[in-house]
C-alpha cells in the first residue's frame, strides 16, 4: 500500500450522454481515515462512489485497491474487492419486504453463506445493540424513523465485515440532533472498528466534526484535497463559499 492509500482513483472520467460528470478525477483515500467528499448537489459525488464500488464503470481512468488496479483482478478477486465495502445509501435502501432482522441477516445468508441460525441470531442482535437499536429486529422499515433506518442500514452494512464504509449523504433529511448522533456513529465505526470511511456530504459542520481529510468536487474535478485545517486556509473560492455559508455565528443572528 504505497502512500497509505487503501483506495486510489486515478484520472477517472465518466459521462452520461453529453453530460460530463467526472473529468480526470484523481484522489486517494488513506487507510483508517475518515475522508469526506463535499460538493454541490449534482456534481457527481455519488457517481464517484458508485464507480469505486463497481455499480458504474468509468469511461477512462483507473481505481487501485491496495495498490492494485481493480480492472486487473480476476472474477473471484473482484468479488472479494466489492465485498470489502459496506455502503450506507442516502435513503437507507433497507429491503422493505423484510423486517430489520432479515435485512441484517441478508449479507450473512446470501453473501457469507452462513447457515447456523443461532450464530446469525446472536450476530444480528449484537449489531443491533451496537448501533443503538436493541429489540427492533421484528419491525419493518416502514415502522422506523429516518434516524432508526440509517442505524439499521449501518448494521446491515457492517454485517458484511467490510474494510471500507461508504456513506452517501448520511445526515440528509435528519434534524441537527439526529445528524450529530449519526456523526458520532461514523466516528465510532472509525475508532472502535478501525474502518476506513468515505463520506459524501454537503453538511459542512458535520464534515468538520468527523473528517480527517476533506475533498471538494466541483466542475467535474477535485478542486481541493487536504485536512480540515488546510481547508480553512485554502484559497479555493467554492470551498470558501461552502465554509462561510455554513457557519453562522450567534452575533450574526442577533435577537
Amino acid at each position: 500500500m504505497k502512500n497509505g492509500y487503501i483506495v486510489e482513483v486515478k484520472k477517472l472520467s465518466k459521462s452520461f450522454g453529453d453530460n460530463q460528470v467526472l473529468n480526470d478525477v484523481s484522489i486517494g483515500f488513506v487507510d483508517g481515515e475518515i475522508s469526506v467528499v463535499i460538493g454541490k448537489s449534482g456534481t457527481g459525488k455519488s457517481v464517484l462512489i458508485k464507480n469505486i464500488i463497481g455499480i458504474l464503470k468509468p469511461d477512462a481512468g483507473d481505481i487501485l485497491y491496495n495498490g492494485k488496479s481493480i480492472y486487473a483482478l480476476d472474477t473471484q478477486e473482484y468479488t472479494q474487492y466489492r465485498q470489502s465495502f459496506g455502503y450506507l445509501f442516502q435513503e437507507s435502501a433497507l429491503f422493505d419486504s423484510m423486517n430489520v432482522f432479515d435485512n441484517i441477516a441478508f449479507p450473512l445468508v446470501e453473501v457469507k453463506k452462513i447457515k447456523d441460525k443461532r450464530y446469525i441470531e446472536r450476530f444480528v442482535n449484537e449489531k443491533l445493540e451496537w448501533v443503538g437499536l436493541p429489540g427492533t429486529g421484528k419491525l419493518y422499515p416502514a415502522e422506523l424513523s429516518g434516524g432508526m433506518k440509517k442505524r439499521a442500514a449501518l448494521a446491515r452494512a457492517l454485517a458484511i465485515s467490510p474494510q471500507i464504509l461508504l456513506f452517501d449523504e448520511p445526515t440528509t433529511g435528519l434534524d441537527p440532533v439526529l445528524s450529530e448522533s449519526i456523526d458520532e456513529l461514523i466516528l465510532r465505526v472509525n475508532n472502535e472498528l478501525g474502518l476506513t470511511c468515505i463520506v459524501i456530504s454537503h453538511d459542512i459542520p458535520a464534515t468538520f466534526r468527523i473528517a480527517h481529510k476533506i475533498a471538494l468536487l466541483h466542475d467535474t474535478r477535485i478542486q481541493f484535497h487536504g485536512t480540515p485545517r488546510e481547508a480553512v486556509a485554502a484559497d479555493v473560492p467554492m470551498l470558501k463559499k461552502f465554509i462561510t455559508n455554513s457557519f453562522v455565528s450567534v452575533d450574526e443572528v442577533g435577537d
Binding site: I55, Y87, D96
Partner: peptide, 10 residues
C-alpha cells in the same frame, strides 16, 4: 435503491 443495495453486496 434497494436493487443497488443488493448489487453492492454482490
Amino acid at each position: 435503491e434497494q436493487l443497488d443495495a443488493m448489487t453492492t453486496m454482490t
